[in-house]
Amino acid sequence: MSKALALSRLEGEAPARPVVRRVLGLPRDAWPRILMPLVIGTASLLAWELAVTVNEVPPWIAPAPSVIWSTLLRDWHTLSVSLWITLQITFAALAVAAGLGLALAILFAQSKWLELSLFPYAVVLQVTPIVAIAPLIIIWVDDVRLALLICAWIVAFFPILSNTTLGLNSADHNLRDLFRLYRASRLQELFFLRLPSAMPLFLAGLRISGGLALIGAIVAEFVAGTGGRASGLAYRILEAGYQLQIPRMFAALLLICITGIVIFLVLGLVQHLVLRHWHESAVRRES
């Protein structure tokens, strides 16, 4: 009886597309990707907690995760102000890197000579360690915020520049011929062909630069922080180090990590939303 009922129901609702089994609103095969890292993370934290408690390690050498967490909650006010400052510098640097990187890449794509003459200097900028030139920039630029932004920008802008340059030059040759056939102007070719072709690589560059902008901001803050002139998260770490408030150091570090992860995920989401209709990286195979 119940079997016959089940059969007739199956016949009644022939699904137009394969049914994705969902658990708590997420496709079932998405759960391992979330659960497995969580299991590993929780196990490591427990082991850490246990090791510190059993061996009676003092908190100024290695604080237990629980102590770090309570410190984070206790010092949230100070830390969140610093986090906000670091975030502002990071995002400003990323925005400028994206804007300038894109603009320069477009110039390079328009003129081979410009690319030949300027690209090596972009490489020089990229390979120079930021810790080595940050002190100079901080001396030369009066506004500390601006100096930090410049440092973060130098670190962040190269992936966007090189990726976008590559992307602009990798437009399909037949499509380029087609544009020539219809006598498209350079601007039309740029907007309707080259920029859309470069979009996947630009977004991939942006995703790398997001993390680099944060690293650039933190490194520059460290350099500036030794002069005691800034108050971002890196400065909190330095300060906590001088005062031997090691749990606070870890709390600030935790915030930096979380920020980096969030930036990575958000830019990944942007990438997915922009490319989901057409690019192989973002579309799911149906069969």
């Binding site: 399909d172 037949n174 062909l193 859309p196 979009m199 209709h277 690019h279």
Partner: peptide, 10 residues
């Protein structure tokens, strides 16, 4: 063309 040569984003 020999290939369809379409813009994949459009």
């Amino acid at each position: 063309f020999q290939e369809p040569t379409l813009m994949p984003w459009a």
